[in-house]
């Protein structure tokens, strides 16, 4: 095969490889070059067990943002979660953030429930009302130990 043909076929091969890589990185891997417009809220939880960075934030079942950071507050022994909420999704001052599970063994996500206050939270504000992750084991444990104590 002559030189030109080899270069042509190799070029097609390289383009094919780069195209499939881009598809995987952008479409499946979720790499975005421009960060979606939005604002960041924080929330404190007693337990976020199982929640990971990049987890989904849902309001009424619709995806409205992602968990952008998780840190630990040693003073109160609480978890501080940064929530990146999309532009155009208002969150009122008395909204509730709760950690829920998709199905019984599914992934953890943050559920936002809107409150009734007219004032909305802005960038960097904290959501005061939170509900921690529900641990099935703890619930069962409580039940067992309570019934032990009652006897």
């Amino acid at each position: 095969m002559d030189k030109l043909n080899i270069q042509l076929v190799t070029g097609i091969f390289v383009l094919l490889g780069i195209a499939t890589f881009t598809y995987q990185a952008v479409s499946i891997g979720g790499v975005s070059f421009s960060e979606q417009a939005g604002y960041t809220l924080t929330a404190r939880f007693d337990s976020i067990s199982g929640l990971r960075e990049g987890a989904v934030i849902e309001a009424a079942g619709v995806r409205v943002g992602t968990v952008s950071g998780i840190s630990f507050d040693p003073d109160n022994y609480q978890a501080i979660v940064s929530l990146r909420v999309n532009e155009g999704v208002p969150v009122s001052e008395d909204a509730t953030a709760s950690i829920r599970t998709q199905g019984i063994i599914g992934e953890k996500f943050v559920k936002l429930s809107q409150g009734g206050f007219p004032d909305m939270l802005g960038d960097g504000d904290e959501i005061a009302a939170t509900e921690s992750a529900i641990s099935l084991e703890e619930l069962v444990g409580q039940y067992i130990f309570q019934s032990d104590a009652a006897q």
């Binding site: 091969f13 490889g17 780069i18 499939t20 890589f21 499946i28």
Partner: peptide, 15 residues
Amino acid sequence: LSVPLLTMVFDFVAL
């Protein structure tokens, strides 16, 4: 260079 490119093609086709 080739093995990563081939891997990406493989992944895509397998998906």
